[in-house]
């Protein structure tokens, strides 16, 4: 906390101080010194900069982990789609990964990958597998049989059916999986601090925060906003990629 104060230009501290005493008549102490205070605006405006780097780290962790998780889960789903008997074993396998408690996962990886970003990314990617795999499978399974039969009957090859019919029709479920995976990864990535991978967790899991929760609230709010923002981007992308779904809701026979 001191480092944050020291990093501030003196003039800035003075300005905040002036404002503080002007508006809080009767207050004798700055709010961070009063344990009962849930959220301290003055501290927040003063220290908002210290959340920049952790937020960026968090964002990177989320994006990289989801991308890697998506790539692996997508390939697994395509394999299971081609070789149906693998569907269940793969679902069970990704389910086991999903069930490992996150901190335990980091500890398990420590002897192999050590402390750092790699460890966090491996664990976070592993968590997304189950969600994305399941959704891609569901999307592929939901493609109407009649469309597949017609495609085959018109002379599309299996690969053409996959890329031109099945995958485009599975986009809503696939993007849905990525959205859920992203939101949950934003939350779990706050634990990456235990793998020494930084992120917003560094601002949350600090002993002083037990008596002064403002930093937790700020870090939490940033995480929520991040989740919402990514979700919105994905949703918009999905809308653009699936014009036929809009047509369905506007359909006037």
């Amino acid at each position: 906390m001191n480092s944050g104060l020291l990093g501030m230009p003196l003039a800035a501290v003075g300005e905040v101080g002036e404002g503080f005493f002007k508006h809080r008549t009767g207050a004798t102490l700055p709010c961070q010194a009063r344990p009962a205070h849930l959220f301290c605006w003055d501290w927040a405006t003063e220290h908002i900069n210290r959340f920049g780097t952790p937020a960026l780290q968090q964002f990177e962790l989320v994006v990289i982990s989801v991308l890697i998780g998506f790539a692996i889960a997508f390939i697994l789903a395509l394999i299971a789609h081609r070789f149906k008997p693998l569907q269940f074993p793969l679902l069970a396998g990704t389910g086991v990964l999903f069930a490992i408690p996150s901190i335990a996962f980091f500890m398990l990886l420590l002897p192999i990958t050590g402390r750092g970003r790699e460890t966090a990314i491996i664990a976070l990617s592993a968590y997304t597998l189950q969600i994305i795999y399941r959704n891609v499978m569901q999307g592929l399974n939901n493609v109407p049989d009649s469309a597949k039969d017609a495609a085959r009957g018109m002379g599309l090859t299996e690969r053409q059916i996959l890329w031109k019919v099945e995958l485009p029709l599975a986009i809503p479920e696939i993007v849905g999986g990525i959205r859920i995976a992203t939101v949950s990864t934003v939350a779990i990535a706050t634990l990456a601090v235990f793998a020494n991978a930084g992120g917003l967790g560094s601002q949350i899991y600090s002993s002083s925060n037990l008596v002064f929760p403002t930093a937790i609230i700020i870090a939490g709010a940033i995480a929520i906003l991040m989740a919402f923002a990514i979700d919105l981007v994905l949703l918009t992308a999905q809308r653009f990629a699936t014009p036929w779904r809009r047509a369905a809701s506007e359909a006037v026979p």
Binding site: D145, S146, A150, R152, G153, G155, V165, T242, W244
Partner: peptide, 16 residues
């Protein structure tokens, strides 16, 4: 199959 027209009861148009 590309040389044989194929029409089925469920039509099977590609929704997308």
């Amino acid at each position: 199959r590309r040389e044989i027209g194929y029409v089925i009861q469920q039509v099977g148009l590609f929704p997308h």
